[in-house]
Design a protein around this nucleic acid. Sequence first.
DNA 1: GAGGAATATTCCTGTCAAGGAATATTAAAA
DNA 2: TTTTAATATTCCTTGACAGGAATATTCCTC
Lengths: 110, 110
Amino acid sequence: MPDVNVSTLSALSEPNRLNIVELLRRGPLTVGEITEQLGLKQPQTSKHLKVLSDSGIVEVKAEANRRIYRLRPEPFQALDSWIRSFQRVMQERFDNLDDYLKELQDKEKP
Amino acid sequence: MPDVNVSTLSALSEPNRLNIVELLRRGPLTVGEITEQLGLKQPQTSKHLKVLSDSGIVEVKAEANRRIYRLRPEPFQALDSWIRSFQRVMQERFDNLDDYLKELQDKEKP
DNA sequence: GAGGAATATTCCTGTCAAGGAATATTAAAA
DNA sequence: TTTTAATATTCCTTGACAGGAATATTCCTC
């Protein structure tokens, strides 16, 4: 079972950060561009980017005055492989509630 | 672009809830079983299950005195398809930072 | 080197969510 | 029908986190 990083999930669970990620999907952007396109204020953008950066979702490249942010693929790969290994097991178990109910009864009346 | 539900992500971003989900992977469980296996207190378990239930990650079946919780596959499918559509676009853009830098320069010096 | 962009950081405040403890609810069992 | 088991709900408190505003930092340009 691949380990899911809670920090990845919690970083993505904030709407503005999810928007940033959706935006960066199209390619790298500077803080200013993100700020403008999402209608945020610059400090908040920087803060959200820091959270995304700390959790490894995003990486920075300094270019003179500017910081260019872009997505890192690893966290998404990890998340994906978790979900898929997940679905594999779920598929087997799915629609087997009746089996479980029978087990439960057996526990009660041995 | 498939829409990711923030509520799915935020529900999964709490460690105890993620543990519950990992546990339910093996099959449906009652509140008591979850409580015991994770060493939680029963009220907290119920609260976490409510959050998971509200976000559609989990569903309940009442069986006499007990409530049997199990995973619903839909949120995971949605999450998976989002990530994969995501990775498709990222793949194209990946390693194209140089292109972007050139664009930036063009913007500055037209 | 002074002024001005672009970005990060700090401090403050309010909100919200999680845990603890107690209690309510429902169904089973005696 | 009283008691007991399984679960949900409420109230309270505390801590984390997001936004606002101000300020610090870094680098460019003149």
